[in-house]
Amino acid sequence: MTETEFDVSDDVTAVVEDTQLPRRLKDRVYRTVEERDGVTVEQADEIAKAVETRYLDTRIDPLDPVGTVSAQSIGEPGTQLTMNTFHYAGVAEIDVTQGLPRLIELVDARKTPDTPTMSIFLEDEYATEREKAHEVVWKIEATKILALGDVSTNVADMRVVISLNEDTLAERMITPEEVAEIIEDHLGVQTVQQGATIEFGPEEPSYRDLLQLVEELRDITFKGIEEVSRVVIRREELDDGEEEFVLYTEGSAFGDVLSIEGVDASRTTCNNIHEIYRNLGVEAARETIIEETNNTLAEQGLDDVNVRHLMLVADIMTNRGEIESIGRHGISGSKQSVLARAAFEVTVNHLLNAAIHGEIDDLDGVTENVIVGKPIKLGTGDVDLRMGSTSR
Rank of each mutant, 00 (worst) to 15 (best):
T40L: 07
T40H: 06
V41Y: 03
V41H: 04
E42Y: 01
Q43C: 02
Q43D: 15
A44W: 05
A44Q: 04
A44L: 11
A44I: 04
A44S: 14
E46N: 09
E46H: 05
E46T: 09
I47Y: 07
K49N: 09
V51N: 06
V51Y: 09
E52G: 03
E52L: 03
T53M: 01
T53V: 08
R54T: 03
Y55F: 15
L56H: 01
L56A: 04
L56V: 09
L56C: 00
D57R: 11
D57T: 02
R59C: 02
R59V: 02
R59Q: 15
I60T: 10
I60A: 13
I60V: 13
D61A: 15
D61G: 13
L63E: 09
L63P: 00
L63G: 01
L63I: 00
L63M: 05
L63H: 07
L63D: 12
D64C: 10
D64R: 13
D64A: 15
D64L: 11
D64E: 15
P65L: 03
V66Y: 05
V66M: 07
G67L: 11
G67H: 03
T68M: 14
T68Q: 15
T68A: 14
V69Y: 13
V69Q: 07
S70A: 15
S70M: 07
S70G: 13
S70E: 02
S70H: 03
A71Q: 09
A71N: 07
Q72Y: 12
Q72W: 05
Q72C: 02
Q72R: 09
S73K: 13
I74H: 08
I74Q: 08
G75D: 08
E76N: 06
E76D: 09
E76H: 02
P77S: 08
P77N: 10
G78L: 06
G78P: 07
G78R: 06
T79D: 11
T79Y: 03
T79E: 12
Q80K: 14
Q80I: 04
Q80D: 14
L81C: 10
L81K: 06
L81E: 06
T82Q: 10
M83P: 00
M83F: 09
